[in-house]
Amino acid sequence: MADSKVQPRMGNTGFIIFLALLSAFVPLSTDLYLPALPEMTKFFAVPEIVMNLTLILFFVFYSIATLFWGPLSDRYGRRPILLVGLTLYMLASILCGIATNAYEIIFFRILQAIGGGVATTVATAVIKDVFVGRKQETTLAIVQSMVVISPAVAPVIGSLLLTFISWRGIFFAQALLGLSVIYGSIIFKETHASERGTTSVMKSFGRLGALLINPGFTALLITFSLMSIVSLSYISSSSYIFQNTFHLSSRMFSLFFSFNAIGMLLGPLVYIPLSKYIDRFTIVYTAFGFTIVAGILVMVFGRMSPIAFALTQFPATLASSAVRPPGTYLVLKQEENDNGSASALYSAGGTIFGSVGMVIVSLAEATPVAAIAWINIVMGAVCAVLLLVSMTFLRKKIVV
């Protein structure tokens, strides 16, 4: 990839950082204000489940939005769609910061999700536009390893901000994030030729259905999307577990959360060198096994102390992160065209299933540690079986 040919105004390094920021929109839109959730719950005097809707509905509408942004980016190009979605995200973040009740925040978070849905979808599509083969998989791993730094630093930053400002300032910080990426989108050089005039909008959306009838694509999509239940159920419940169950301060919570986020960072970084010598499917099956073991450890030791919970959850965090690069590569490799639509379905699948995990732990608020343990065990086993079935049934169609 030459700077002069791909992104002359960004350069290689700036291009990767830009893609990482786009891909990090989900964790930065959630983890940054996780330390404030208990405070916001008390401030508005609402049940935990009501305030958790700011997370759950964010992911639901984020996943729905990706299904629209992906095909639209295929038809109109990546850059104009980015500018529209990111502007909506920035404005919605400001509205969250000036909301007067919990239900206004829920509504504005939905708008934030719709706008932010453009980011991850377009970032993945751009990677597939520019790179091929091993370089594509490696770039996905590098970008995702940079992305998962945000769960490590976002709660710490959010906790520090809370010592100087109220929870409202967290949303203004998200607005600044949106503004910075809007600037990146302005100087971004288009990577996809617009299909305007060659196909209708409805036909562009119809490509979503065409992708789903591809058995190889759909089988792998479901398998790897299910792993989002592991990561997002932990993310959504972590502030309540550490602050309410173990009675830690918001700052101490951010430190414990950052420890587990190290696993999110290490996953892709571990995968890159291992994949040079070990078959990617062996690595993926091993990661599923780690998730099951982590669930058992959380069940037995996780309720003893915050340290015990963080340590026993760590393998699951590491494993769910490690399967992201090969999972993304394998799913997208099933369809060489329609990069935006394929990326949209993959983003939507992960957030939809992740939202299911968030609902499960919200309903199990009396025993959140046990809920996390069972999610790890069940999802690790289910994903391993599904991948095994997919490989047996679709072996000739899977590009390895």
Score class of each variant (00 low, 15 high):
Gln112Glu: 09
Gly206Ile: 08
Leu95Ser: 11
Glu335Trp: 02
Phe58Asp: 02
Thr198Phe: 11
Phe224Asn: 01
Ile235Asp: 04
Pro273Ser: 10
Glu365Thr: 09
Lys276Ala: 15
Asn260Ala: 08
Thr30Met: 09
Phe131Ser: 05
Ile106Leu: 08
Pro368Cys: 10
Leu67Arg: 01
Arg134Pro: 06
Ser180Gly: 10
Phe171Ile: 09
Gly133Ile: 09
Tyr277Arg: 13
Gly197Met: 07
Leu221Arg: 04
Phe281Thr: 14
Phe314Glu: 11
Leu297Gly: 07
Ser249Ala: 12
Val270Glu: 05
Glu365Ser: 14
Gly206Asn: 12
Leu221Asn: 06
Met391Ser: 12
Cys96Gly: 03
Val148Gly: 01
Leu248Arg: 03
Ile49Arg: 03
Arg324Cys: 10
Gln136Pro: 09
Asp74Val: 05
Thr328Ala: 13
Lys203Tyr: 13
Arg9His: 13
Trp374Leu: 11
Met146His: 01
Ile307Cys: 05
Val356Gly: 08
Tyr33His: 02
Leu255Ile: 11
Pro80Tyr: 04
Gln313Gly: 06
Phe107Ser: 12
Gly158Phe: 00
Pro315Trp: 01
Phe25Met: 14
Thr121Gln: 05
Phe43Pro: 01
Leu226Ile: 11
Ile307Asn: 08
Val300Trp: 12
Leu269Gly: 03
Glu104Phe: 11
Ala24Thr: 09
Glu335Asp: 12
Met146Thr: 00
Ile186His: 11
Trp167Arg: 04
Pro215Asp: 09
Leu83Gln: 12
Ser238Met: 02
Phe205Gln: 07
Leu83Asn: 07
Asn214Asp: 15
Val356Ser: 06
Ile229Ala: 04
Thr282His: 10
Ala113Lys: 01
Phe171Arg: 01
Leu19Glu: 02
Ala173Asn: 05
Val230Tyr: 04
Glu365Leu: 04
Ser93Trp: 00
Leu345Asp: 13
Gly97Phe: 12
Val230Ser: 03
Leu266Ala: 13
Phe15Leu: 08
Thr282Ser: 13
Arg324Ser: 12
Thr41Phe: 04
